[in-house]
C-alpha cells in the first residue's frame, strides 16, 4: 500500500440555510504538491477550505490528515495538525500591531494563576525576523494593522502562516491585494515552500495566477466539482472554460458540477 495522502477529503458538504455552499467534494493533497482550487466567486472554494482550517464544521463527509480521520472542530485543532491558513479576508485584528496579529491565539506565554502572561519581547523579535525574510522594507511593526497598506497586511497574514511550521498550507486568494512585484514574490515563496515538502492548496478565481504554480487542480461551480486533474493534461483555455461555463474537456472526467451539452450544443 502506498503512503496515505497528506489530506484526503471525501464527500465533504456544507450548507448555510438553504444554500449548498459545498456539495460532495472529493479532494486530496500530497506533500510537496500544489493543488489549485479554482472557480468563480461564490463557487464554494473558501467554504471548502474553511472546513479544512477548522473554521466551519462540515455537514457531511470525511477528512483524513495523514490517513487519520479528524474532526477539525476548531481552528486550534487544525493548527495542531499543522494546517495553516492565509484567509481571503486576511483575518487580522485591525486594532492590533503586526506582532500581536502574528501570534494571535498562539501567544508565547507562561501561566500565572488564571492568566497567561505574554513574552512580548520574544514575540516582537520573532515577528521582525519572519517579516524581514518576506519583505525587507517592512518597518511598520508598531502600528495598528488598520493603518497599513494592503500589501503590508498581506505580508503579516503570510508571515503568520509561516511562523508555525505548517505542513499543510491553505492560501485563499493570497495575491488579491498585491501588485505585480509582490505577486511574483508570493509565487517564489510558493515554490520554495513546495520544495520544502509542504502541501499547498492555492485558491483563486483567476486561472492565470496559479496555472504555472500548480501540479493539480480542481474546478468548482455552485459548490460542486466541475472536474479535476493534472495541470499538465490541460491548457489554460480549457481550464478557463471549466471555470466560466462548467464545460469539461474530453480528457477530464466530468464531475457533478459539470454542465451537460444538450442536443443543440448549448450549455444548460
Amino acid at each position: 500500500m502506498t503512503q496515505p495522502h497528506l489530506v484526503n477529503m471525501q464527500g465533504v458538504s456544507k450548507s448555510f440555510g438553504g444554500i449548498h455552499a459545498v456539495k460532495g467534494i472529493d479532494l486530496t493533497l500530497d506533500a510537496g504538491e500544489v493543488v489549485a482550487v479554482l472557480g468563480h466567486n461564490g463557487a464554494g472554494k473558501s467554504t471548502l477550505m474553511k472546513m479544512l482550517a477548522g473554521a466551519y464544521q462540515r455537514d457531511l463527509g470525511d477528512i483524513q490528515v495523514h490517513g487519520q480521520s479528524v474532526a477539525l472542530s476548531s481552528p486550534a485543532e487544525a493548527h495542531d495538525l499543522g494546517i495553516e491558513t492565509i484567509y481571503q479576508t486576511l483575518a487580522l485584528a485591525d486594532n492590533l500591531d503586526a506582532s500581536a496579529n502574528l501570534f494571535l491565539g498562539r501567544e508565547i506565554a507562561w501561566r500565572f494563576g488564571p492568566f497567561r502572561v505574554m513574552d512580548q519581547a520574544r514575540m516582537r523579535d520573532q515577528t521582525a525576523q519572519v517579516i524581514a525574510r518576506l519583505n525587507p522594507h517592512f518597518d511598520a511593526l508598531d502600528v495598528p494593522c488598520r493603518s497599513l497598506s494592503g500589501g503590508q497586511r498581506q505580508t503579516i497574514a503570510i508571515a503568520r502562516a509561516l511562523q508555525f511550521d505548517a505542513r499543510i498550507l491553505i492560501m485563499d486568494e493570497p495575491t488579491a491585494a498585491l501588485g505585480p512585484h509582490e505577486t511574483a514574490m508570493v509565487a517564489d515563496l510558493t515554490r520554495r515552500l513546495k520544495s520544502q515538502g509542504l502541501g499547498i492548496f492555492l485558491i483563486s478565481h483567476d486561472v492565470h495566477d496559479v496555472f504555472d504554480l500548480a501540479d493539480r487542480f480542481i474546478v468548482m461551480k455552485g459548490g460542486q466539482e466541475v472536474g479535476s486533474g493534472r495541470i499538465s493534461e490541460v491548457t489554460k483555455d480549457e481550464v478557463l472554460g471549466m471555470v466560466i461555463m462548467g464545460r469539461c474537456p474530453a480528457q477530464i472526467r466530468p464531475g457533478p458540477g459539470a454542465s451537460m451539452l444538450d442536443e443543440h450544443g448549448a450549455q444548460t
Binding site: A55, P75, A76, H79, L104, G105, F112, V117, M118, R160
Partner: peptide, 24 residues
C-alpha cells in the same frame, strides 16, 4: 497589556471574525 486574556479582548473588539478564525 500583558496577558493573553487582555489581548484577546482587544482582538475580539477589533475583529470578531478574525479572532474566531485564528482560534481564539
Amino acid at each position: 497589556r500583558a496577558t493573553t486574556f487582555g489581548r484577546h479582548s482587544y482582538a475580539i473588539g477589533g475583529g470578531m471574525e478574525a479572532s474566531r478564525l485564528v482560534g481564539i
